[in-house]
Design a protein around this nucleic acid. Structure first.
Lengths: 270, 270
DNA sequence: CGGTTACATCTTCCATACAAGATTGATCAT
DNA sequence: ATGATCAATCTTGTATGGAAGATGTAACCG
């Protein structure tokens, strides 16, 4: 969903002040300490790794990106209490852009704003995760039907991705495996001609990503690769019902991971 | 997606100031002129019917509700230019809550914020509508499968809704018919146990609602009722594949309405 | 007459000050 | 000891002023 767009005019050359401003901003937002680790007192003392990158975006959007990364990667844990002043001081900006970032993240289901009280990182709702997965499963099944009906280049493309996944699995690079896994499903959406729809459900997918981050290294990537192979094989053979069944089986395994994750980290769930 | 929650404490009795504040606010936000029509100069002079209702919500959320109604009902038309100052003066609040409302509506795809330039009511994207419908179709097909597999009370409940729809159609009450149509699909979601998932896709549904509002009175409600009857019959008979086919046919008819609407109102689409 | 520049005037963005509800903890009365 | 009350101090919500970019218009120069 395109929410903002860039300048339209090309009449005026970029003002020379632009550079000056960027230089002024850099120290203010910590551009010189990228990768550094700062202490930050919330309700307790905790380490947070991410900092804002200097860019042309507005401050508010930069804060959104930084906080979302921290939340999805569990640097900010479900239940953590934050405040506009905390984050504002943390990034050297005023409360205003931070407040707008909170609003955006609350709409995406990552924060819970308790008016006049506080803002907390939302705990993960098992029911919400299941229903988000229901949405995803519904769409992916529909996608796999379309692709299996008209395989085209699908077989070659998917085979290539699976090979890369096997390489990542052998190298024990779970982060890269995660990225490739996501790319596998996104590619299916593109092959079905509904990549835009995939972006529409990105918000809900973040909930699933938080769970998946907790299971990094736990999930047996070999099993996932085998399931991907089954899907690709059925798609290549034009076997619609077979592809659908394989996809459902692939997604069903996530339920097991969820229940296991809940028992491992009960504090992170409602 | 629950974004906010109410107070938790019950230790302190409600402050008596609460009532005073509500009374003070009423005239400021036009509670005494509900239903009235005011002139409002945007880029031209135009009539806008909705006003803010006095309630316990924050100003920002009230502005969100009022603007969303205006947009979905086409009181604010796609392409209309608005500004924080306009709306702020319109509702007698400062720019701050209006700005926050803009951010929320932009995330829901109803507004397009062009930084430092202006904010416009987003034009309807035909491709976005089609992909939103793809999402909806995927989920509804999955829902209808579940319900048809375990009909239970479905037959009686759906039959009741169809009867009400016939009454509304006879009375030529297209608004009520629209409401009942939505209730029909929402009820199916409830019967499948995924009502929460239905709420998750509400944001995308608003795009479809804008199109549907343009077709009010155009759509032949008799046809829709017949399709609903076919769906309910297949569900009652436990005919999974039949119910799925009937649902697909029901949703496919919307494509015809969309193309017709685009040719009727080309200015409202990208 | 064509093309550039400067300026007035929009817009959104950010900073700051203040308002008001909510929480906590101390104080005081019983 | 127990319970109510109040005040200090958190929080988010709102108002307002100003900064910076974008746009349109008029003046200016070739």
């Amino acid at each position: 969903m395109v929410e903002r767009e860039g300048p339209l005019t090309r009449r005026c050359a970029p003002t020379p002040k632009g550079e000056v401003k960027r230089i002024l901003w850099k120290p203010a937002i910590g551009g010189s300490v990228v990768g550094d680790i700062r202490l930050w007192s919330g309700r307790g003392i905790r380490e947070v790794a991410s900092v804002l990158e200097a860019s042309e975006e507005t401050m508010a959007l930069r804060v959104v990106g930084a906080l979302r990364d921290d939340i999805v990667t569990m640097a900010l844990k479900p239940g953590d209490v934050i405040s506009e002043s905390d984050i504002a001081g943390r990034y050297g900006v005023s409360r205003q852009p931070v407040r707008e970032a909170f609003i955006r993240l609350a709409q995406q289901g990552l924060l819970l704003i308790r008016p006049k009280r506080a803002t907390v990182v939302k705990k993960i709702s098992p029911e919400g995760v299941r229903q988000s997965r229901f949405i995803r499963e519904s769409i992916e099944v529909e996608i796999i039907r379309r692709v299996a009906s008209h395989p085209g280049e699908a077989k070659a493309v998917l085979g290539e991705l699976i090979a890369e996944q096997e390489a990542a699995s052998s190298a024990d690079d779970s982060r890269r495996f995660h990225t490739l896994d996501e790319l596998f499903h996104r590619t299916l959406a593109r092959l079905a001609g509904v990549e835009y729809a995939w972006q529409l459900i990105d918000d809900h997918k973040m909930q699933l990503d938080r769970v998946r981050y907790l299971t990094l290294g736990v999930s047996s990537s070999q099993v996932a690769i085998g399931e991907h192979k089954a899907i690709a094989a059925a798609v290549g053979a034009g076997d619609v019902t077979g592809a659908e069944a394989a996809m459902r089986a692939h997604l069903a395994r996530a339920e097991l991971l969820l229940t296991q994750t809940i028992s491992d980290h009960p504090d992170y769930f409602e």
